[in-house]
Amino acid sequence: MKKVLLFVALVATLGFASCTNKQAEAEKARLDSLAEVARLDSIAAVEQAKADSIAAAAAAAAADTLVEAAAAAVK
C-alpha cells in the first residue's frame, strides 16, 4: 500500500511539474510574440516618420519654387 501511495504521489508531482513547465513555455512564447509586435511597430513608426519627413521636404521645396517663380514674374 505504501508503494501505491508513493507512486501516486510521484505521478502527481511529475504531472504538476510538467504543467508548470508548459505554462512557463506558453508565457515565454506570449512575451516573445509581444516583443516581436513591439519591434515591428517601432520599425513602422520609423518608416512613417521618414515618409513624413520626405513629404514635408518636398512640400517645402515646391513652396520655395512657387515663391521664386512669383518673385521672378514680378520683376
Rank of each mutant, 00 (worst) to 15 (best):
A72R: 15
L14V: 15
A58V: 04
S42P: 00
I43P: 02
R39M: 05
A51R: 13
S18Q: 01
L14R: 06
S53W: 05
E68H: 10
I54S: 08
V67T: 14
V46D: 07
L40T: 01
T65Y: 10
T13F: 14
S42E: 05
L66S: 07
A70T: 11
F16I: 12
E27M: 07
T20K: 11
D41C: 03
T65L: 14
E27A: 13
L14I: 10
K22D: 08
L31W: 10
A56N: 08
R30T: 00
E25A: 10
E25P: 02
I43Y: 03
I43T: 08
L31Y: 00
I43G: 00
I54C: 00
V67S: 05
D41I: 05
D64Q: 15
V67L: 12
D41A: 06
S33L: 12
L31P: 10
S18Y: 08
A26D: 12
D52A: 08
Q23E: 09
D32G: 07
A58N: 13
R30H: 07
A59H: 11
S42N: 02
T65M: 12
A49D: 11
D52Q: 15
A60T: 15
S53F: 03
A62V: 02
A24D: 08
D41H: 09
K50Q: 09
A59D: 04
S53H: 04
R30G: 01
A60S: 14
T65F: 10
F16E: 00
A57M: 03
E36A: 11
T65S: 06
E68Q: 14
A73C: 02
E68C: 00
E47P: 03
S53V: 06
I43K: 09
V11T: 12
E68K: 07
A12V: 13
A71N: 06
L14K: 05
E25R: 15
L31E: 14
E36G: 04
A51E: 12
A29M: 09
